[in-house]
Design a binder for these strands. Structure first.
Lengths: 211, 211
DNA sequence: AGCCAAATCCCCCTTTTTGAGGGATTATTT
DNA sequence: AAATAATCCCTCAAAAAGGGGGATTTGGCT
């Protein structure tokens, strides 16, 4: 079976003309990669995306008009099979998570080399998830729990169950302890976290990554 | 200012003798990197870690005796400044997240090239978070929401608040709608998700990544 | 051996919340 | 015209939450 190498169709959405033209030139210089169109805003791009049929969209996160992150769901609706690779200058922690939850497949900084960009494009097409090192750092850090939690092991376990929406009686049953024990733990948790409600306990614990 | 290149001290904890010796040989072959000790289990390693003073520990996740993930917090207690790099053969989604939440700084597959391993060691020492491509994929996928949620936008917003531990009355206040409206939405959510409690709604929604 | 923190369990009490059963009205979109 | 989404209304009983006061037992560390 001879396998014809498929051309990978790329669309750029980036307001900076220099970057836009630079990337277009660089990507078009690669065999098997073609920039089918480059737009300076999401609004400009939207009406053409279905005709462009891109495999990958390189999307700037800081755009005039509609923001890059807001554009993701709209783009996904128009062309659901297209992978979205975010491009950014500043690594904003919040923006990274918003973009990822909304469906971006990867996250690159604009200073990446052509080689890295091309690699990343290939990687998303192959179902991967390219990230620049700084973004990886932000993501992994978000997983790390605070090692200086004031809560004991048991208290942490219980608060995690509470955060999963479980009632105290359910927690008691599942942990094979008495309801009164659960109540005691929760009382102690509230004192330690200086809160007076489930909501605030969860909020406080999540903010400080105790859970 | 002349900067003396600091030797990077590496400890290996890996039960497979071939891999252990291979990695030791390879890492010692690099200038500025030294394997100060290599152990076949966490139990063996624990008593020596404080003397070894490693900058980085390469930790196998599938170990006899104490599991790699359980070892992380213990190691962190002994030598808090040491970075932990997980090594794995199989990418188990659950294990990845457990390791990361417990404090691992990176996650590599054992088939990685020497170059990648060395790069990763340097990267964690520099405060980075190296991940093999497959692990990155798992992590990013975990952020993606299901695009086929049966819930409406408003219902999703409300269920997110519920999952944050908020009471219905609090949600009503914060969203500037009546308590009765919140109750209606939650009733509809329960019907759509085919559940009869907050706990099950949250569980179902999280399992399917509706929230 | 002695201490302390952690985990367990036992009462009291009031207020709030939840879940379930019925609805209705108004926009918006198809 | 017909769904769909979002809003609001009423009743009801059972469950849960939060706060107050305790006690006992266990495990780990000095």
């Amino acid at each position: 079976m001879t396998e014809a190498k498929k051309q990978i169709r790329v669309v750029l959405i980036e307001d900076d003309e220099t970057i836009r033209e630079g990337f277009t030139y660089l990507i078009n210089g690669e065999p098997n990669y073609a920039v089918v169109n480059a737009y300076s805003s999401v609004e400009d791009a939207m009406p053409h995306l279905q005709a462009d049929k891109p495999d990958v969209i390189l999307l700037d996160i800081e755009l005039p008009g509609m923001k890059g992150t807001d554009a993701i769901p709209k783009i996904k609706t128009l062309v659901p099979k297209t992978f979205i690779l975010m491009l950014t200058v500043y690594e904003n922690e919040e923006a990274v998570f918003v973009a990822l939850t909304k469906g971006a497949s990867g996250y690159l900084t604009k200073n990446s080399s052509t080689e890295k960009i091309i690699d990343a494009i290939q990687e998303v097409v192959d179902g991967g998830a390219p990230m620049s090192t700084n973004v990886a750092k932000i993501v992994i850090k978000s997983f790390h729990k605070n090692q200086n939690s004031p809560l004991t092991k048991r208290e942490t376990e219980i608060l995690e169950q509470v955060a999963n929406g479980k009632s105290r009686s359910k927690i008691a049953k599942e942990m094979f302890i008495d309801l009164e024990t659960v109540k005691s733990h929760i009382k102690n948790i509230y004192v330690k976290l200086n809160v007076h409600s489930r909501e605030d306990a969860i909020k406080e614990a999540k903010n400080n990554k105790y859970i």
